[in-house]
């Protein structure tokens, strides 16, 4: 086809596009995925919401976990939204993650200092370290699917970075939901194992991004 003809065809019947469409699309994908993850946490045989949730909900440990994962999820979402459009400048978006990580590291070291009773093994390993990253990964899968489906309507041009951002948001959302189940209270545990789950989700996202996100 001749290029002039193509241009005429493309501009015929031009439909207006929704403002803020990309963000809304991503948000919808995120919410759908999170809903599935929530159902999983409720009904997965070995999961279920912790029975002492109403007690836990007034403790620092519970909110610290949630604040850590949710802040990473929202920072990741900011990066994801940029990376889902062409021409995102090289914003060194990994730097965005340092504040929550540094803050949690600070809390961790304070706790270590003021609690010298010395059971460091349980401080770092809790009683569920082996399952934490795995469940975080499991719960991040539906969120990741939701985000990738939304991104199919968008236009990421740096597929590895966009995949990593999607993985990070999915991991952090999955971790936030897992926090409803997980009864660990040590900041050291969260810093170590939750972060490991997030990192794994990010790496998987970066690895599959170039395959899944092409357009």
């Amino acid at each position: 086809m001749n290029t002039e003809v193509l241009i005429v065809e493309l501009s015929r019947n031009l439909q207006p596009v929704p403002l803020h469409g990309p963000r809304a699309l991503l948000r919808r994908g995120l919410i759908r995925g999170a809903a599935v993850a929530m159902v999983l946490v409720l009904f997965w045989p070995s999961l279920a919401v912790r029975s002492d949730l109403s007690v836990a909900a007034v403790t620092m440990g519970f909110w610290m976990k949630l604040l850590y994962t949710a802040s990473i999820a929202s920072l990741g979402f900011f990066a994801l939204e940029r990376l889902s459009r062409p021409g995102a400048r090289d914003l060194h978006w990994t730097r965005l993650l340092w504040p929550p990580i540094a803050l949690l590291a600070l809390v961790t070291s304070i706790q270590l200092a003021i609690a010298p009773d010395g059971n460091t093994a349980s401080f770092w390993m809790g009683s569920s370290w082996f399952q934490c990253p795995l469940y975080v990964m499991l719960l991040s899968v539906p969120v990741f699917v939701g985000l990738v489906r939304a991104m199919a309507h968008l236009a990421p041009t740096r597929l590895e970075a966009a995949g990593a951002a999607a993985g990070l948001v999915a991991g952090a959302t999955g971790a936030s939901i897992y926090a409803l189940h997980c009864a660990e209270t040590s900041p050291g545990f969260v810093l170590l194992w939750y972060s490991l789950g997030l990192a794994a989700a990010t790496l998987v996202g970066a690895a599959v991004g170039p395959r899944l996100l092409r357009w």
Partner: peptide, 25 residues
């Protein structure tokens, strides 16, 4: 590329310069 621009035109953010968007596509 013209077709891609057409299909992805909603991903241009009016608050940002156009040229980097175009160049990236």
């Amino acid at each position: 590329t013209l077709i891609a621009i057409h299909e992805k035109r909603h991903t241009y953010d009016s608050e940002r310069p156009f040229k980097p968007w175009l160049a990236a596509v």
